[in-house]
């Protein structure tokens, strides 16, 4: 009787095992690397209808975030500015610039500018800007150095893991409330403490956490209500 299985098939089981193992591990590795907001969201930088630059308006002119995002301290939602907010200045400055044509059209017709939304939490998550901003969590902790961006991109993953990392150790992010919109703030700016040494983020954070009794929710119902 002839051999049904030729000699090379002796290695087949081990080869299938090795190939299967390699495939399995690489699929898992690929999923952990790619199937997370760290990959899907970070770096999202859509083309906006107006080439608006935060670095010109914040760094160069010195506008405060709240001149435009005026409800961020009072509301859950941080609003985008109205067309009038742009026209406050652009009715006088650069009033013929072609890059501002969309703004002028919007001002004439009353149709809002269709800004493309970048940061967008899922609708089953309860998120509140005012709860964070009034407790010394800066925009920079959640949005990155917006003041240096010519075009805004998604800088932090804003996943559930990311929220919880801060909620478990908020002292790494707290700062005095009047410095929340100063994205260049450094703990050293607060000057030396009692011992004459410059103070660290840890010290300032701990102190504020105790002073304000900061206690961010880590139970499911805190964010999924």
């Amino acid at each position: 009787m002839a051999n049904i299985f030729p000699k090379w098939t002796n290695h087949l089981p081990i080869q299938i095992l090795v190939a299967g193992g390699v495939l399995f591990i690489s699929v898992i590795a690929g999923m952990t690397y790619y199937f997370t907001p760290k990959y899907t969201r970070v770096g999202y930088q859509p083309v906006q209808p107006v080439p608006f630059s935060h670095s010109i308006h914040v760094n160069q002119l010195g506008l405060d975030c709240r001149y435009c995002h005026s409800q961020v301290e009072n509301a859950a939602h941080s609003n985008l500015p109205t067309t009038q907010t742009c026209m406050n200045c652009h009715s006088q400055i650069k009033l013929n610039s072609p890059r501002l044509a969309t703004v002028r059209d919007s001002w004439k017709t009353g149709q809002p500018i269709a800004w493309v939304r970048i940061h967008e939490a899922p609708d089953y998550v309860y998120f509140n800007h005012s709860a964070h901003v009034n407790r010394g969590v800066s925009c920079v902790s959640c949005h990155g150095q917006i003041n240096n961006m010519a075009v805004v991109w998604h800088h932090e993953p804003q996943s559930m893991d990311w929220c919880l990392t801060c909620h478990r150790a908020p002292e790494n992010h707290l700062r005095p409330v009047n410095q929340v919109t100063n994205l260049n703030w450094k703990p050293e700016d607060e000057g030396p403490g009692k011992d004459g040494k410059l103070r660290t983020q840890q010290e300032i954070g701990e102190q504020l956490k105790v002073a304000w009794n900061v206690n961010p929710p880590v139970t499911c119902a805190g964010c999924h209500r």
């Binding site: 690397y33 907001p37 760290k38 990959y39 899907t40 969201r41 970070v42 770096g43 999202y44 930088q45 859509p46 083309v47 899922p122 991109w153 998604h154």
Partner: peptide
């Protein structure tokens, strides 16, 4: 990761 892209994040 972090690659700049104009595509909407995939959910």
């Amino acid at each position: 990761r972090g690659y700049k892209s104009t595509n909407r994040p995939f959910e």
